[in-house]
Amino acid sequence: MSQPEISLVVLISGSGSNLQAIIDATQNGTLPARIKAVICNKEDAFGLTRAADAGLVTEVVSHKGFDSREAFDQALQKTIDQYAPDLVVLAGFMRILTPEFVRHYSGRMLNIHPSLLPKYRGLHTHQRAIEAGDAEHGVTVHFVTEELDGGPNVLQARVSISDDETPESLAKKVLIQEHQIYPRAIKWFAQGRLKMTDNQAFLDHNVLSESGQQHQSGDTD
Rank of each mutant, 00 (worst) to 15 (best):
R69K: 14
R69T: 03
R69I: 05
R69A: 09
R69C: 05
E70A: 14
E70N: 04
A71Y: 08
A71L: 10
A71P: 01
F72G: 05
D73Q: 02
D73S: 00
D73P: 04
D73N: 11
D73F: 02
Q74M: 10
Q74F: 07
Q74S: 12
Q74L: 14
L76Y: 01
L76C: 05
L76A: 03
Q77R: 08
Q77K: 07
K78M: 10
K78D: 14
T79D: 07
T79C: 09
I80L: 01
I80M: 07
D81K: 12
D81M: 14
D81V: 05
D81H: 12
Q82H: 13
Q82P: 01
Q82A: 12
Q82N: 09
Y83E: 14
Y83H: 15
A84D: 15
A84K: 14
A84W: 01
A84F: 00
A84V: 14
P85I: 08
D86M: 12
L87N: 07
L87V: 12
L87A: 09
L87M: 04
V88G: 01
V88F: 06
V88P: 04
V88S: 06
V89F: 09
V89G: 06
L90H: 00
L90W: 00
A91H: 09
G92N: 06
G92Y: 03
F93I: 08
F93T: 06
M94D: 06
R95K: 07
R95F: 04
R95E: 00
R95S: 00
R95G: 08
R95C: 02
I96W: 09
T98I: 01
P99E: 00
P99G: 11
P99R: 08
P99T: 03
F101A: 02
F101T: 13
F101I: 10
V102F: 06
V102K: 09
V102Q: 01
H104A: 10
H104W: 00
Y105N: 05
Y105A: 03
Y105L: 05
Y105F: 13
S106H: 14
S106N: 14
S106K: 15
S106E: 13
G107F: 02
G107I: 04
M109S: 06
M109D: 01
M109W: 10
L110R: 10
L110S: 08
L110V: 13
L110W: 05
N111D: 01
N111G: 08
N111T: 12
I112Q: 09
I112A: 12
I112M: 12
H113L: 04
H113N: 04
H113G: 03
H113D: 00
H113W: 11
P114M: 15
P114S: 12
L116G: 01
L116E: 07
L117I: 14
L117P: 05
P118Q: 05
K119H: 13
K119P: 07
K119C: 07
K119N: 11
Y120I: 04
Y120R: 10
R121C: 13
G122D: 05
G122R: 08
G122V: 10
L123Y: 03
L123H: 03
L123G: 02
L123C: 03
H124G: 01
H124Y: 13
T125E: 01
T125L: 04
T125Y: 03
H126G: 06
Q127E: 15
R128V: 00
R128T: 00
R128G: 01
A129L: 12
A129Y: 14
A129N: 11
I130S: 05
E131L: 03
E131I: 00
E131N: 15
A132W: 02
A132Y: 08
A132R: 12
A132S: 13
G133A: 02
G133F: 08
